[in-house]
Design a protein around this nucleic acid. Structure first.
Lengths: 189, 189
DNA sequence: CTCAACATGTAAAAGGTTACATGATTTT
DNA sequence: AAAATCATGTAACCTTTTACATGTTGAG
């Protein structure tokens, strides 16, 4: 049941509405968890019912009203409790890897196209995470920021997201190059 | 519905029993998907019902009998069809990252301990994947194997698994070091 | 005038985890 | 004698995804 803890962790540093949370989770800006809008609205309702977050109505003139949520003391205690539990290992679970596993039996052209597309997607995330990191650390050097900064949790998870997407990009490019090479080699036979 | 395709992909190069598949998926040796034994037995039953795999009973003296499964032509066609569909992007979803996101609000000692444990786990997988890769390529150089080898799909996915676990290990070690440094810095204040 | 963004949900279906169940053999 | 490995499942529960539903405002 880690979605609720992911939501709590996301709300620690800023008050957000369900819609704003959606943006963070949905677009993968949250580099530690992913969730659909529907899940987030439902989870916020449950969290408020259980007293782990409180919402306050914000009346807006030009936009529909919204509810901003923040973590309560009970919510923080719940996060502390969660942190003390053993974490489950995380596994890769990826459609594209399934397809590459079957590379010797399926059409190479399709695979190359999908690997290329994924590499571009990963590169876009690399750029995004790079910008986010720069914003978070401001004009400080990374080393200095990590040693003395006040809010390093989100920075550390963003670093993991960056490394993950770099790994994705590099592997996709490499795998696509290997498959292209083999296409060329086959023609030469 | 990619579990079924993951099973098909895993059965492409060798005939396996449900139990043997379990070993591959359960322990994370399968670096492209993860699943519980119960899921695999259920999926094999469905796949056989749908004619995508066939099982044959192997009578054993000293061990309980087992059923070995292999992919049928219809199964291969289904994999081909799956490969031609757009792949969904994969996201990180990790308890430990949720905890690190909350690093500024929860106990650092607990986090350091969990990061250290995870780094060791990742290192064990790095070693395992390294051994698997060596076994797959035999005495050939990697470049030569990838260009001319017959079975490179599993090799490519294993490379991704290796890079992923290296990334995990490096990040865990870095994050733990950052948190330790800050503990030291706090004492000096 | 149409499309994107703001804002929040409900309900059904699919997928995944956990607990329960059984029973033989080999290793420690 | 106990624990690990081989071998296969069922059932209940929890989580996630997909489809449906509604209404306003600002930009092109």
């Amino acid at each position: 049941m880690a979605l609720r803890h992911a939501v709590l962790a996301a709300l620690l540093d800023e008050e957000l509405s369900g819609y704003q949370l959606t943006k963070a989770f949905d677009l993968g800006v949250a580099n530690f968890w992913h969730a659909q809008p529907q899940q987030l609205y439902a989870e916020l309702t449950r969290l408020e019912r259980d007293g782990l977050v409180t919402g306050r109505e914000v009346v807006q003139d030009t936009r529909p009203n919204k509810r901003l949520f923040r973590v309560t003391d009970a919510g923080l205690a719940e996060l502390e409790r969660f942190t003390s539990l053993a974490a489950k290992p995380s596994f890769i679970r990826d459609d594209l890897l399934v397809k590459v596993q079957a590379a010797d039996h399926v059409d190479a052209g399709t695979l190359i196209a999908q690997l290329t597309e994924r590499a571009a997607f990963a590169q876009a995330k690399v750029d995004l995470f790079g910008r986010l990191l720069r914003t978070m650390r401001g004009d400080r050097a990374e080393e200095d920021f990590l040693r003395h900064g006040e809010c390093i949790g989100p920075y550390l998870t963003c670093l993991r997201g960056l490394a993950f997407e770099r790994g994705n990009r590099d592997w996709c490019e490499h795998a696509a190059a290997v498959l292209r090479d083999r296409q060329g080699a086959r023609v030469q036979d």
